[in-house]
Amino acid sequence: MSDLSQIDRDLINTLQDDLSLDSRPFATVADKLGISEDDVLERTKWLKENGYLTRFGPFFDAAAMGGAFCLCAMAVPEDKFEDVLTKVNAHAEVAHNYERAHRLNMWFVLATETPDGITATADAIERETGITVHCFPKLQEFYIGFRVAA
């Protein structure tokens, strides 16, 4: 973090804004920062290669493309944790899974092609483990941005 110059920090912040669909969109970014288009491209490549940026490109909303997603949680007894984990993770529909410090200690995201797939997968996990799967679908998203001030 400390090794980043001010211009690189400004660039990271500017690159979190929506890129234009103009033929030469990085020229617009360059104008904003008062550096050349080549400089923007070289610095952005460097930031990506060195892991400051994980990706540069369109952010797709998978739900808008027809998929279904749901955050789910289970209260798994400590002595059954590894066994339940194996059964849960065996489902390809389980995208992310985190252990969290709470009575509900296993939190995962189900990603399926259709909304029915969410219920079917949650039901299958309940049958296989004998543990209730709580589903927390998003009712409302308070979305502003995924910004990090560099």
């Binding site: 990271i12 979190q16 400051y52 940026l53 990090v148």
Partner: peptide, 14 residues
């Protein structure tokens, strides 16, 4: 379908 075209910063690295 596309929210925006932008950089995804690495929280940890920052």
């Amino acid at each position: 379908v596309i929210r925006r075209i932008a950089a995804a910063p690495n929280h940890y690295k920052l």
